[in-house]
Design a binder for these strands. Sequence first.
DNA 1: TCCCGTTTCTTCGTTGTACGGACGAAGCCA
DNA 2: TGGCTTCGTCCGTACAACGAAGAAACGGGA
Lengths: 410, 410
Amino acid sequence: MKVGTADTATTVDAAGMRAQNSSLLLNMIWREQQLSRAEIARRTELSPSTVSAIVADLEHSGLVRNIGAGVSRGGRRPTLIGFCDDAFSIIGVEMGATHVTVVLTDLRGRVRAHRHSPHAVREDPKGTLQKVRELVQECLDAERVPRRSVLGMGVAVPSPVHPSTPGKLSPLIVPAWRDYDVQESLKSAFNMPVFVDNDANLGALSERYWGAGVGGEDLTYIKLGTGIGAGFIIHGDVYRGSGGTAGEISHIAVDPAGQQCVCGLRGCLVTLIGTGPLLERARELMGPRGRRAPTVRELVEGARSGEAAARQVIDSLGHYLGIAVAGLLNLLNPAIVVLGGEISSVGDLLLDPLRASVRKRALSTSMAETRIVTSALGDRAIAVGAATLVLQAALRDRSLFPLQHVRKTA
Amino acid sequence: MKVGTADTATTVDAAGMRAQNSSLLLNMIWREQQLSRAEIARRTELSPSTVSAIVADLEHSGLVRNIGAGVSRGGRRPTLIGFCDDAFSIIGVEMGATHVTVVLTDLRGRVRAHRHSPHAVREDPKGTLQKVRELVQECLDAERVPRRSVLGMGVAVPSPVHPSTPGKLSPLIVPAWRDYDVQESLKSAFNMPVFVDNDANLGALSERYWGAGVGGEDLTYIKLGTGIGAGFIIHGDVYRGSGGTAGEISHIAVDPAGQQCVCGLRGCLVTLIGTGPLLERARELMGPRGRRAPTVRELVEGARSGEAAARQVIDSLGHYLGIAVAGLLNLLNPAIVVLGGEISSVGDLLLDPLRASVRKRALSTSMAETRIVTSALGDRAIAVGAATLVLQAALRDRSLFPLQHVRKTA
DNA sequence: TCCCGTTTCTTCGTTGTACGGACGAAGCCA
DNA sequence: TGGCTTCGTCCGTACAACGAAGAAACGGGA
């Protein structure tokens, strides 16, 4: 949908010019929250008259509104224009390995309603889609949101997504979904635009809009969970690779002497730091206490309260992850690396050994400028990221906002 | 210089509209070599009258010209418009580790003049810059190219380049260059735009324009030489990372049991498949025949003629490189991987063991769609890529083409 | 309190660009 | 030769941004 990269650009006529300038203003107002017409004119170098005309347009469509006067700079006080965060709602869906989460957000990523339900997503496509439909409907009903004020739906799936078939999941990773199309199914059920993407990609998007990467252009997100996935933001946009499998790092070999993996290699990242092996190792180390493996939450709490076994598991996680992250830094040189997934909530206990492991392996040049942090967005980050995918698309192309009937202003 | 990605876009007025459409047409004519006005109108959905006006404009500035009539489609025959490949020249410079290469190209990447000279680039900045100036002047003189018909100069350097200081080389990698600025120096010497980038990045650009990646959007180039560098084309553009060090893969560890490297790690790629260690291993294996290590050329010829020792060295190169490439495929999922550097000229002898090594390690999904090939562009690929950097910039922003005085057409 | 300069925002006429229809030129085909 | 198609140009129109001028709103100094 980009315009302007000369190789792939679209032509521009008068209407296109207006669309482009209008989108630009909308984005600026969204970013800055409040802005006067005069200020916009100064920043964009558009003439004041043009700014007024476009703002009137945006106001008319309900996306921005007058929010009172600002402080004078020596003359008449400016009238501030604000973005209407609640002009539309967005639905975000996370289909995890074993659960479904649905959120209803406004245009600023704030969650207005949410539903969560455990479900065997990988094995049961039909039931999953049914569950999604239910939870979405519940969210809509709870906030009494009319269908026409919903921008669209974003869906995070635990599988790579091929750009040319966005609704299909990878038959190699989730074979049961072979005959289902997530996009078609939900689109026909709710009659609104549906966007589908990989969960790690949407975690990355979430961080870029609402987390540690706000305003940045390049960011890498790593999702720690049953599998290990990375998502890349490059030039402000999710990078998916030519076949949509960029960031599939579960099966990067970090220990040639390691255990055999189902994929055929030895010492894959997932066999060492996937949730399963991690909890199993914790069980072994905790020894006599019990034969039940702890949950991730218990592991985190154990580490926080100083349990040696838990600490040791986290340390080894940091160590192995560091090997992969070091390779990633040398290869991609992102400005920031964000760790997500429940276990990342241990914070520094993970970051310290991770950074040490990375420091031993990465070139000092790329290291020096890269920040490595844990996510602070919580367990709804991916679902919110899914909603953000819709927001991003709409902010780029204003025509994705449905036309609302004109509101009368008092 | 992008326009349109809503986050960073520039505003558009009437003049900008014309500039954008004009650039679009120029790109199309460049790509297709010859095209009629009617055909352009059909493809761009611009009105015939607009197309005529813009083409007249381009013709007036000497970038395109009438090249006779095409075949009729049942009515009046179209008049074909062609791109003037020789309207301007571009200078491309490669500063290698131990040599300097300069080429003078037209607007289609064809080399009109070239000069090559061995030089200790890393140790002698002053002499290198002097040498570059000499060779450039020789190229200009040889073809009697007036200064005003040169678009600009592109320079490939054997070091990462930080986006904010494009003229400075990395003090960690080439300390002697600490006080020199390649861009400033050459810009003031020749009074034309100078663009500087890393050599592997420009190899990638070269492949995307003239080699295996023509027309593609995503491509990875790997330069085998004294060091190992990768260049990425993402969305048609060189990706440099946030600090300009993306693709610095020399020190990725592929053999934890390997030899100690100067960087502090064990089993870095460069200690295993850098030109130095490779030739050293060849010397050892060739045994009694001589105590002199062979040159790369000799190694290549040896492998071609079936010498066991040479084959063995190439096999191990493929093996280790495969480990790195596998990681890269899982991480970035490019459409195509191109190998460059002199040793890549062995072709299949390298590709076979490489592909085998990759196949053992990469996910079949990302593997299936990725082509791995060797470069066919020869030893001037990097210098030509440097010139291409200028071409790319000018095709995106027509205002970079100097105004020529109007030519009278007969 | 009044006056003046400043800033904000709108109004209105101008300018530049793309569009669309009409038209002549140039070809094909029967 | 005549009918039909395609190509390219010419002219008037529509639309968006611009710039100058003016009205409104405000601050500050006398």
